[in-house]
Amino acid sequence: MNIFRLAGDMTHLASVLVLLLKIHTIKSCAGISLKTQELFAIVFASRYLDIFTDFISLYNTLMKLIFLGSSFSIVWYIRRHKLVRRSYDKDQDTFRHYFLLLPCFILALLINEKFTFKEVMWTFSLYLEAVAILPQLVLLQRTKNIDNLTGQYVFLLGAYRGLYILNWIYRYFTEPHYVHWIPWISGLVQTLLYADFFYYYFESWKNNKKLQLPA
């Protein structure tokens, strides 16, 4: 494991913790897209099918359990928790996220490294993760006042993807056969989706102003 990968995992972990902290302590999910959270839960469920079959390391297994547990509990909170549910902006969060599932699945059936069930599901999770943030970005654009925690959550998620790209570059030069076009291209697409958000995030940070995205 290299420093970029570790930093990427840690920002990813931090993003999830920030979100859970917000939901759990303030009992509010204002500004958070349930659609994106549902997609993330599907992403982890389909990617970590190997959790009981392939042991990589204790770190790996623990992190997988954390991401699975946190993504499903966030969805549970927004859908089922009495107070949190009330703060959910259903009318703003209108992205048709189900329409992302089928194209990603078909693409995974067509373009994969190996045509096996686990591998296709793994590839599907990569394609789906690349676009899973879209409902959240649309919701951010509609939200007049983005609160700090929501802004930090999206920023940390974007940072995680950016750090993973550095991790791939590092691994490509240090590990002899490390060439994986599918995660690289989908990861790059995913990171590019954050570019616009990053721009406004840094602008607001530089000017010490509240984060607001242009409509």
């Binding site: 392939d54 990589i56 390391s57 991401f67 993973y164 991790n167 590990e175 056969h177 490390y178 995660p183």
Partner: peptide
């Protein structure tokens, strides 16, 4: 699991 496998990533 080989060293150069993307499946060891999260």
């Amino acid at each position: 699991e080989t060293e150069d496998d993307a499946h060891d990533e999260l």
